[in-house]
Design a protein around this nucleic acid. Sequence first.
DNA 1: CCTATCTATGAATGTGGTTCATGGCCCTCG
DNA 2: CGAGGGCCATGAACCACATTCATAGATAGG
Lengths: 303, 303
Amino acid sequence: MPSADLTPPELRLLLAVDQAGTFTAAARRLGLTQSAVSYAVTTCERKLGVVLFERGRAGARPTPAGRRVLVHAGHILRQLEQMRADAQGAATGTTGGPLAIAAFRSVALHLLPAALERLTARHPGLSPHVMIVPELGAGTAGEVAEGRADLAIATLGDDADPPPGLLADTLLIEPYLLVYPAGHPSSRNLPLIDWPENCSSYTREWWSRQDWLPPATLQVADDGVVLSMVAQGLGMAILPRLTLTAPPAGVTAVPLGERPPTRRIVHVTTAATRQSLAVRDLVRELRKVAAPLGVPRPVSLTE
Amino acid sequence: MPSADLTPPELRLLLAVDQAGTFTAAARRLGLTQSAVSYAVTTCERKLGVVLFERGRAGARPTPAGRRVLVHAGHILRQLEQMRADAQGAATGTTGGPLAIAAFRSVALHLLPAALERLTARHPGLSPHVMIVPELGAGTAGEVAEGRADLAIATLGDDADPPPGLLADTLLIEPYLLVYPAGHPSSRNLPLIDWPENCSSYTREWWSRQDWLPPATLQVADDGVVLSMVAQGLGMAILPRLTLTAPPAGVTAVPLGERPPTRRIVHVTTAATRQSLAVRDLVRELRKVAAPLGVPRPVSLTE
DNA sequence: CCTATCTATGAATGTGGTTCATGGCCCTCG
DNA sequence: CGAGGGCCATGAACCACATTCATAGATAGG
């Protein structure tokens, strides 16, 4: 019956092996020998009593047990960082440390810069690291769940559930707007331009109440591209207001009437990261930046 | 600028020092020398660049920074345990590992035993550890927040907020009942017996709608004592139904009319512990045990 | 069949945590 | 007031464990 827990260097090593895909590559990245990596992995496996990687000609791939361990490893290392930052913060009165943020493109462009600027101005010790993640599949929240980010900014259905095991809190509820080339008489003849991240379920209910449908639908990379294509007269689009923060010349945006479709932008954290001073300060700044942009947020439970 | 993270043995050592109150006592408990503890603590402080304990004649007391570190330490060690349990579970198909549960007295007596019995029957590898914590101050949820428990069972106001940074989910909503000595003609002349854990705000609103008040109030240790005092004819009481699971002879319980006061029993976890298989299984069993006892729980978000 | 690219293993090595022994400090009790 | 007994800090010797270096085994492709 083996016992003893994995040390932080071991956790980092396991993550490196997973990312590198082979022991030798991981060794290079870590500045170690292939031998050391091999030894360390087997040590971890003996400590846990479980095989973590399938070794083969092509390198090392995690077993199911290995995948679970890798998720935990990310969280644990992240929390060690926050422990350090918290300790130093409590002693010096300032907030510091790394801060990994997962965001999707449009929010990274239109919401984050202002918040980060204010945040780092007040806390020079902070080093934020923004990861742009497409809001598809597990999306940005997945980055938090997998231990790769401290905080994610995600979109959520108007009253959808938070992702299991994570904390979500509303930052902003923003309406979708109809956008069409300026001066165009009737947008109804233009094709609809859409992008894959746009969870069309948000707008589907609205479409079902309309008495017309666009003649065609074009798929393009992201909402920024959608906007510039509209500006060039190639079609019309239904875009969230955040995307229209600094619209190019030549587009007109109009509200979608009485009950416009909306999307909810939330921040997602784990309970552990939520404790961290850095994350709390970031959330505060995000709120300040988001407040004038959207429907006033509901009363916050977590302050 | 120091760097390197604290190892699990170091984290355990810091917790031991905090609990023991002195380096020497912690050393005894850990089977180490006082010298080793002293050296280890200073090493931790050098690694973090922060003083963690105030040393003095009377031993060692954590600084504010030290307190933050201790909280993180508890969580990290807990998560290491879950990593091990998860890994072994993923490999062997069973669930195991330690499982620290914080509960207040009455629920520990009336709800937990059945759930734990079913749980350990299915997963012999599990070793649950139940801590009885008075539901005062931070209460049972505080144990989870401070990293001392994986899961807490707490009471919450009917629509109160979950504790900040923690996940709460309703297990049971149960009414309060009026309890008085059997055969007593009118309970209105008897004194009210109350206990400190009883958050009287739950029943206050109900009292305000009544046209009478008890002649006096007796405070006793806990709801079990309340019940046996009622059985002995010393007074009447307003008790949650769970306390009346196996009432002694000589008491009569009657509902409190149309809109009786209720209390909500929830389980509280961190996002991280919520991932663990053991915690998930425990929650499932708790639900099964609680279901027939109270108002059907609202749809669960986290399954 | 030989080569390239993986991982596994064995022996030598150095860093770091541990013990042991000792010293300094401060409160308390005779 | 001085001795004693808690407490923590420090220095030297010791021991264990991770790392390196060197080498062997396995497996696919030319």
